[in-house]
Design a protein around this nucleic acid. Structure first.
Lengths: 150, 150
DNA sequence: ATACAACTATTGCGAACACAATAATTGCGC
DNA sequence: GCGCAATTATTGTGTTCGCAATAGTTGTAT
């Protein structure tokens, strides 16, 4: 992924690099809260009332359903979430935050937000907006390309 | 990673999304050549003369050395690379492309390049240059942040 | 009411990764 | 020279993920 010659491919490589760098930083933040990146991603999607079905989590995070099952297993062992029966569908389980889980999530989320803000602080407001606009355009293009079956 | 509130974090989320989308496209391309993404990444770094030590590959790709050992194992089983003894350091192995490997790499690389160019074609030249500049600035900032030990 | 397709969640299995421990080699200090 | 820390590569182990197969439930059509 490093020595390809064309310059057309440059933003591709940089997005790849940036993802690796950002992901590395994220892992450090989450580890301080005894959470993996995927565990954190699940926690962020939950609430402590209605909860979410595992299938919903799978669809939103683009993880296989079996992967969600196991992430929820681990979170349940850590007593950060609970499975409760869905009142309307006996096939379904609803995953809800425990009080402990809600606290852990709030703290991890605050720390993560602060960390990301620090890491992105090299850009001023104009650059920030420009970057968002360009990335948005690219994302739309990629999704269309994906839907076309490319 | 979805429902965080601040807008400061927006480019972070978009880079994350874009990486997922790009990676998905990459995997399809490489699979047509019986290569995983990491196998391809190793092949791209190699040449058929001097080769590279496994430690070098590890440092450049940010994979653990043991991971590189096993990726090279698989590539060697597929007869795309060979390990040769380093003439200057008996601890070291140099990984070189076989003729088969060189051909496979060239074809996969060409296909990948074309695929990426298509996917990035939604941006015109100006946008392309702006994006590269912004990403470069961000990357520098992240690396500094990393070096600081944050 | 019954059969059947679709859906929810789980389990078994294998692939790919990181971390820790290990063996061999190198280079440095003394 | 000799010992010892650092380096290179490998192996063992555990984690995390996707895919395929499975059990139970639901909705629908006949």
């Amino acid at each position: 992924m490093q020595t390809e010659l064309s310059t057309t491919i440059l933003p591709y490589r940089m997005i790849h690099d940036l993802y690796v760098l950002l992901d590395d930083g994220d892992q450090r933040v989450f580890r301080a809260f005894d959470l993996s990146t995927s565990q954190y991603a699940v926690l962020v999607l939950l609430d402590n009332e209605q909860g979410k079905r595992l299938t919903d989590l799978s669809a939103q995070l683009l993880f296989d359903k079996s992967t969600i099952t196991r992430i929820v297993d681990r979170l349940e062992q850590s007593e950060l979430v609970r499975r409760i029966a869905d009142p309307d569908d006996r096939r379904a389980q609803r995953v809800v935050l425990t009080p402990t889980g809600a606290i852990r999530r709030a703290r991890a989320q605050a720390a993560h937000l602060e960390s990301v803000e620090q890491r992105l602080a090299v850009l001023d407001e104009l650059e920030h907006d420009q970057l968002v606009a360009l990335l948005a355009k690219l994302r739309v293009g990629l999704r269309v390309h994906l839907a076309d079956g490319g």
